[in-house]
Amino acid sequence: MLIAQEGRGPKPGSEPEIPEKPQPPATPKAHRPTLWAALALTVLLLALALFSLLIGTGSSPIARAWDFLLGDPAARADAQVRLAVLDVRLPRTLAAVLVGVALGVAGCLLQAVTRNPIAETGLLGVNSGAALGVVIGLTYFGVKSSYAVLLWALAGGMTASAVVLLLAASGRAAGSPLRLILAGSALGATFHGLTSYVLLSTQSTFDTFRYWTIGSLAGIETSDTYPLVPLIAAGLLIAFGCARPLAALALGDDSARSLGHLPGRIRVVVAAAVTLLAGSAVAIAGPIAFLGLLAPYAARLVCGPRIAAQLALSGLVAANVMIAADLLARVVIRPWETPVSVLLAFIGGPLLIWIARSNRLSTAGASA
């Protein structure tokens, strides 16, 4: 008994052990890169928005537009400058921010819910449904105004997404990510075929449809975007409300159920948010490729697996890229404009190839 007690004590000549002090939690430090990135992206977004108000394809000089923003009486009295800044550049700047945030958050949601790092909003059939809606409105209902085209695009995108959800919710594997993707791909191909058939049978609508489907912010008016702000706001609220369930879903369906979540219901709610966001964005600017795919990837490189941080950074990254692309579209072939979707395709295509060939693709998933 004496030996056992001696064995438990410190050895002769050795110093007594000092208990380690408790270490402070590392969570705040882990969040610092995300906070700094969000701050930098916000400052960059404000700077790009300012440049967007100063630069355009018209003849109004940058100095004159700057004087107008500073409240110079002579510049304020110039009708041409007022038209360029308030009626042309301001609406498309606001539209670029709305479209970028909507597509970035929608892409992040879709990649998280499908656990597919290269998923994008076209998987739910939103783009093809919006295109079919525009063609039907132009051909059979005599749509003329840009606002009416916007409404038909929104209705078509939401209808397509609703049909995809119904198809994915039926059967034995209801609500699975694979079923969602297959239903979206099948319906997208079907709607694309119907759109081509209507266009070939009625060539009179082709010119208007071609202008819409090319993807551009030119000609956007404030009255076109205001009605869609509540839809985008609702989609963002749903998206951030799904952050915790999506984090549980990233662990697998069984783990999510053990934590009290219903995977099928989560996917339906997320798909509804994606429909509101992507449908509104497509209605405003037409089909914009790659933005909803690349923005979440860039966000994950900074913030890691935190879903709420991914959503916030994805929206900021996409908004910055959208405004930058729109600025470049105005000046690259002056006095004409290059469609924004074309510039994003030139940027996004090589980046997607690089991502696919790099070793980071396996770690770029929504749960990584």
Rank of each mutant, 00 (worst) to 15 (best):
L199W: 04
M1N: 05
A183D: 05
A298N: 04
L39A: 15
L344H: 10
P350Q: 14
A309D: 10
A272W: 08
K11F: 06
G286K: 02
W212L: 12
G157V: 03
L293W: 03
E20F: 13
E221M: 06
A283S: 12
A95E: 11
Q23L: 15
I181N: 03
G235K: 05
T205W: 07
S358R: 02
L150S: 11
L293P: 06
L46G: 13
A239H: 08
G100P: 01
I284Y: 07
V85Q: 08
A74K: 12
P245K: 04
R76T: 00
P305S: 05
Y197T: 09
S128L: 09
A256S: 13
Y211S: 08
P230Y: 07
P177G: 10
R179E: 02
D78R: 00
R360G: 07
G292C: 04
W66F: 11
Y197L: 14
I288Q: 04
V143A: 15
A312I: 13
A239G: 06
I284R: 04
S358H: 06
I353G: 07
E17A: 12
Y147P: 01
P227D: 01
L246W: 08
A77M: 01
A96W: 04
P91I: 14
L167M: 14
F68M: 07
A47M: 11
L311S: 06
I238P: 10
L293I: 01
G279C: 05
A329F: 13
V97S: 03
C108V: 01
A239T: 05
I266K: 01
R257H: 14
A186N: 02
A295C: 03
V198F: 13
A271P: 02
L103Q: 07
F290V: 01
T121W: 00
A356R: 04
T190F: 15
I353P: 06
A47L: 13
S59A: 13
D326R: 13
A356T: 14
A324Q: 11
L98V: 00
I323H: 10
V85C: 11
R115N: 14
L54D: 02
A160K: 08
L200D: 07
T114I: 01
P22K: 12
L200T: 14
P263E: 05
D253R: 07
V134L: 09
Y147C: 00
P33C: 03
Y147F: 15
S204F: 06
A148F: 08
L294I: 14
L237I: 14
A102I: 03
Y211P: 00
D67C: 02
R257V: 08
A324R: 07
A162M: 14
A169T: 06
L228T: 00
A186C: 15
K21A: 09
L294C: 06
T202K: 09
